[in-house]
């Protein structure tokens, strides 16, 4: 007997629906678990005090500061470098063997897993350049790690700026750089910002590359040469070493909330751009 293809069609549709909502279900389970289990332990003291007894008691304030320092400094370094590279690739050269090599480099960097960034940062910054486990070593490692994301998103954003705007700028006697700074970058800014936001999200959640470069000291990083512990690293240590489940849940909630916030901002910016150009 031959099965009616319309019937198969319906079954397939049902199945695909189920799978899509299963995927969303995973996200809901993750977020719900963290929210319900973490929420009861979050209070003013947890956010704004230092950990005691390896994190069994007290809060995570130094980790919050450590995370903010690491992420902000990395973004400050990676953004000009990444946007500059994207500008070079889109505005200053034609497609050639040279740009292909650079693109290959960027793609390769993007594919390297974070543990290898950790390994590299450890041997190069921590050991060979004698920085020790420090904020500086962490910042430099994370900068290299997020660079490809910023380059790729910026390049996409810059490419989507209409060619006509550039030509008008040139016709009004702007140089290339004047055109880039006055016309191209302002028009591409939302796209570039989205890339920066995604990179922030990635850096906030990163563990493997951070733990071997910035270390895991529980104190405030008072200088660039001090070790420190980001929220993600703190959470990892709490959870893996079974120090305190309560604190682990609470930390993960703050971690996920901050990533959620960054994602929402990125999504908001992106939508504004889409609605502006359509």
């Amino acid at each position: 007997m031959r099965v009616n293809p319309r019937f198969i069609d319906k079954i397939v549709k049902l199945g695909l629906n189920a799978q899509a909502f299963f995927t969303v279900g995973i996200l809901i389970v993750i977020v719900a678990t963290i929210c319900f289990k973490g929420f009861p332990y979050i209070n003013f003291e947890f956010v704004f005090s230092s950990p005691e007894d390896m994190g069994r008691r007290g809060g995570i304030f130094p980790s919050i500061i450590g995370t903010i320092l690491l992420v902000m400094l990395s973004i400050l370094l990676a953004t000009p470098l990444g946007v500059g590279t994207a500008i070079y690739l889109t505005e200053y050269t034609k497609e050639s063997r040279f740009t292909k090599i650079i693109r290959f480099g960027v793609e390769s960097l993007a594919g390297i897993p974070s543990i290898l960034y950790g390994l590299f940062g450890f041997i190069f910054f921590v050991i060979k350049l004698k920085m020790g486990w420090s904020l500086l070593a962490g910042v430099l490692t994370i900068t290299i790690m997020i660079l490809p994301t910023i380059i790729r998103t910026s390049e996409e954003a810059i490419k989507s700026v209409p060619r006509n705007l550039r030509l008008v700028s040139y016709s009004l006697s702007a140089t290339k750089w004047e055109t880039v700074t006055k016309v191209v970058i302002p028009s591409a800014a939302p796209g570039i910002l989205t890339g920066v936001m995604l990179s922030i999200g990635r850096a906030v959640g990163e563990t493997a590359a951070v733990i071997f470069t910035m270390g895991s000291s529980l104190r405030f990083p008072a200088s660039l040469m001090d070790s420190g512990r980001t929220m993600a690293v703190h959470f990892y240590i709490l959870a893996r070493e079974g120090i305190s489940m309560e604190k682990a849940y609470a930390t993960s909630l703050i971690l996920v909330l901050s990533i959620l916030l960054v994602n929402i901002i990125a999504y908001y910016i992106m939508n504004r751009v889409i609605s502006k150009y359509s």
Binding site: G205, E206, A208, I259, V262
Partner: peptide, 9 residues
């Protein structure tokens, strides 16, 4: 968001 959740989580 699923992509943004840290691997430790």
């Amino acid at each position: 968001l699923l992509a943004g959740i840290p691997s430790v989580v």
